[in-house]
Nucleic acid binder design. Sequence first.
RNA 1: GGCGCCGUCGUCUAGCCUGGUCCAGGACGUUGGGUUUUCAUCCCAAAAAUCACGGGUUCAAAUCCCGUCGGCGCCA
Length: 442
Amino acid sequence: MNIRVRIAPSPTGPLHIGTARTALFNYLFARTNNGKFLLRIEDTDRTRSTEAFEKDILTGLKWLGLQWDEEIVHQSKRLEVYQKVADSLVKAGHAYQKEGATYFRIPPHLENRSTVLFTDLVRGAMAFELKDIIDFVIMKSDGHPTYHLAVVVDDQETRITHVIRGEDHLTNAPKHILLQHALGYAVPYYAHLPLIVNKDRTKMSKRRDPVSVSRDFRDQGYLPEAMLNFIALLGWNPGGGSEQEFFTLAELEKAFQIEHVGGSPSVFEPTRLDFFNAHYLRARTPTALLAQLKVFTKLPEATDEFLLRVVTVVKDRLITLSDFVRFTAYFFKTPPLTKAPLVFHKSTLADSFRGLSAAIEALEKAPADTWESIDALNHVLAETVKRATLNNGDVFWPVRVALSAESASPSPAELLWVLGKIESLKRLKEGIRALEKQTRLG
RNA sequence: GGCGCCGUCGUCUAGCCUGGUCCAGGACGUUGGGUUUUCAUCCCAAAAAUCACGGGUUCAAAUCCCGUCGGCGCCA
């Protein structure tokens, strides 16, 4: 069988995180089965559909790396087709007109049964009593098809073999199967994915919750591979007792099996996304990360060489891309030395003064190539501690704070390496003056 | 209201089909400790689930059966 799956988002809002996951699972199902992954835009609701939303959906899917295989189908361009199918249904007695709309007539039997039976790939055997399903609208009075008709017709024409969609459609499945029988269509396999819900276990709301892939995640500095990894584990697990938690898209394309999709809804918990994002950020090379940061935001004026050094030393401390600018201001502009104490809490004013002075002396004397190596710079500071018979905190802390003015920052050797000899010594001497002032006051 | 799906640590989940190795495993988060000048990383440890509840089957149930409750979804 040539496996063909699709997603069919409505461009009535930006790409939703739930749609993204449905897209992922469809995409993975296609890839693991050597099939095709299609995209259809359900834009029959002309009043709420916009091109801007459609563009957001397409760019969002591409950003995630979920490239679709064939041409995009727009339902708005196929209205005559639906009308024709609806007419044929009326002609065959499967449907009837009422108050301008066309209704599908639920048959008394289906293949000599009073039930609709199907196997859901996620949930197993499903049975719905025909008497519980009532006639439903397939064509509205304004000439637009309802979701039920359009989806069935389009899935048939694009030869969809597996319908993988959200659980909110589970009870629609028997209606679609009935339509497929009446039209003589093949019935595809169905798989209904569990919903992604809020902490309070209700549906995530566009208004209140972070659901937009572009606005709430991409623009906040999340990486596509972190999103993918996070989303994949919402409802799916690798099975076989595997405890693997990091998956690239390529790995997912090998590991995914729809049998390992669970049936219960997943609560959206962003702290786990942060964990994945920090992980993938750390995995970037400084060069790659710098390139990405330039695309993401406007960076302060500086040479690439300088920026690359900044990226190198702060990379491991970022959770999102947007942390970068926030965490690195002091590299680009000399900060006032008032934000953090120059004296470590286990040190004294006198020892810090001695430590900082000794560090300046040692750094001034250090050979030029010392400044090209974080290790070498660190060695200079460590030797200073030894020679002056001080503690680490008497030297490392005041050097670090004099350079950054922060109580939390990369190590002093890293700061020295980024700032270079001239700027570093300038700041360190500024630190000495601040300590002298404190001595006089104290 | 009818029908349907779901119910294991705060969260994501493994285990459930094929009952015993599960006084329930992993991860995130949290807390404590180690490394360290700080933060982050890294390492170690701990707390955290009466397996929704009740009954039944069985020598034995998270796992099988019945019922109840709860959450959600679709339809009305």
